[in-house]
Deep mutational scan, measured.
Amino acid sequence: YQDQEQRILKFLEELGEGKATTAHDLSGKLGTPKKEINRVLYSLAKKGKLQKEAGTPPLWKIAVS
């Protein structure tokens, strides 16, 4: 689980600052079920590491501290 968090954070960091992506996109790029990706995304957002942008589907990006 920790491993997934690292992979997602790394992927988003590599996208570049301010760039956002969807759970669907992450799921495809990382070869992980979207349900699992979503769980990790919401967990990271709760920890303040990610920012969720409203929309359908929601967009995710690295939180700027």
Rank of each mutant, 00 (worst) to 15 (best):
Y1G: 10
Y1K: 13
Y1C: 11
Y1I: 07
Q2R: 12
Q2Y: 10
D3P: 08
D3W: 15
E5G: 06
E5K: 04
Q6N: 09
Q6D: 11
I8L: 08
L9F: 06
L9M: 03
L9V: 05
L9E: 03
L9C: 15
K10G: 11
K10C: 08
K10A: 07
F11M: 13
F11Q: 10
F11L: 11
L12E: 01
L12K: 01
L12Q: 00
E13N: 09
E13R: 10
E13Q: 12
E13L: 09
E13F: 09
E13A: 11
E14D: 14
E14M: 13
E14C: 08
E14G: 13
E14H: 10
E14K: 14
L15I: 07
L15M: 15
L15Q: 07
L15P: 02
G16A: 05
E17M: 07
E17L: 05
G18F: 05
G18L: 05
G18E: 08
G18R: 05
K19P: 03
K19H: 11
A20I: 03
T22G: 02
T22E: 01
T22V: 01
A23Y: 01
A23W: 02
A23D: 03
A23E: 03
H24V: 02
D25N: 14
D25W: 09
D25H: 10
L26Q: 00
L26G: 00
L26W: 00
S27L: 02
S27T: 05
S27R: 03
S27V: 08
S27E: 06
S27P: 00
G28H: 15
G28D: 10
G28Q: 14
G28P: 04
G28W: 12
K29W: 08
K29P: 04
K29Q: 11
K29E: 10
K29L: 10
L30F: 15
L30S: 04
L30N: 00
L30W: 04
L30M: 12
L30Q: 01
L30D: 01
G31W: 03
G31E: 15
T32G: 05
T32V: 14
K34Q: 10
K34P: 10
K34H: 15
K34T: 12
K34N: 06
K34V: 14
K35Q: 06
K35H: 12
K35R: 14
K35T: 09
E36A: 13
E36I: 15
I37K: 00
N38A: 03
N38H: 12
R39N: 09
R39M: 08
R39Y: 09
V40W: 11
V40Q: 10
V40Y: 14
L41I: 04
L41W: 00
L41F: 02
Y42H: 14
Y42Q: 12
Y42K: 15
Y42D: 07
S43L: 12
S43T: 13
S43P: 01
L44W: 01
L44F: 01
L44I: 00
L44M: 15
A45F: 15
A45D: 07
A45K: 15
K46C: 07
K46P: 01
K46N: 05
K46T: 07
K46D: 08
K46G: 10
K47G: 08
K47Q: 11
G48T: 02
G48P: 00
G48K: 08
G48V: 00
G48R: 04
K49E: 11
K49Y: 09
K49D: 05
K49C: 11
K49M: 15
K49T: 09
K49Q: 13
L50K: 00
L50D: 00
L50W: 00
L50G: 01
Q51R: 11
K52P: 03
K52A: 06
E53S: 09
E53T: 10
E53A: 03
E53F: 10
E53L: 13
A54N: 14
A54C: 13
A54M: 11
A54Q: 13
G55S: 09
G55M: 03
G55F: 03
T56Y: 13
T56L: 09
T56S: 14
T56A: 12
T56P: 08
P57D: 04
P57S: 04
P57I: 04
P58Q: 04
L59F: 06
L59N: 09
L59M: 13
L59W: 05
L59E: 06
W60I: 01
W60T: 02
W60R: 01
K61A: 05
I62G: 03
I62L: 14
I62D: 02
I62C: 10
A63G: 10
V64F: 08
V64M: 06
V64D: 10
V64S: 13
V64N: 13
S65V: 15
